[in-house]
Amino acid sequence: MKLIKKYIPLAIVFVFGILTLLTYYVPHKHSVNFLEAMNKWENIVSAFAFFLGLISLFYSHYAKISRKADGWGYSIFVYIGFLAIAVPAYVSHGKNMNGSSLTWLGWAFQYIYNPLSATMFAVLAFYIVSTAYKSFRIKSLQAFVLFVAAMVLILGNVPLGQMIWEKLFGWTSCAISDIVDWILHVPAVAGKRGIMIGIAIGAVVTALKIIFGIERQYLGKD
């Protein structure tokens, strides 16, 4: 049992981890084909997993409805939403357009899915305003530096801000666009690169931990 639950999965991870790592250094067609095969396998596994996900989704919402749990009415919309797309998709053979006219599926996408998705995306704008308000509360020196940098960027990107800058600091012969460029290309990029370097090294070490079987929580401990 331990062989099946522990050693074989570890061996699979080791062999395929090393082979995938080697594809970065081996440009041969065999290496490219291997990567393509792995991607295909990933897609196949994902397709099966998606089916499992769908069962999980339906089961949990069915349980909510049958238990009459709080907010069970919302669970009905999961089934309605599923049918609203799945039935037109079946009738339209998965096609959005039939010549120049919309199929049922195309109609469902254009008039149900897209407006809902766009609405959710639009909400983001309001959250950004609320987040910006939180960020601009000056509670420390760092917050003050952030505030100043953000104000300069805001001023630099609107004509009114540029006019104000010209009036107040025109005598410095330093255009606000130069300062905006400097902030975006020097301190911001430096910070970003610092984070990215840390992430890259962390990713390498995490990969080594998994390949060599030191991190195996995904298998269970025994």
Partner: peptide, 29 residues
């Protein structure tokens, strides 16, 4: 931030083998 996320599993488990891997991360940095 980024690498802290990768280190979190090891940090929480307090497993010396996993924690030691963080040293390799520090060496890389």
């Amino acid at each position: 931030i980024g690498e802290e996320l990768y280190a979190a599993g090891a940090y929480l488990s307090k497993d010396p083998m996993l924690l030691s891997a963080l040293k390799a991360q520090d060496f890389g940095k």
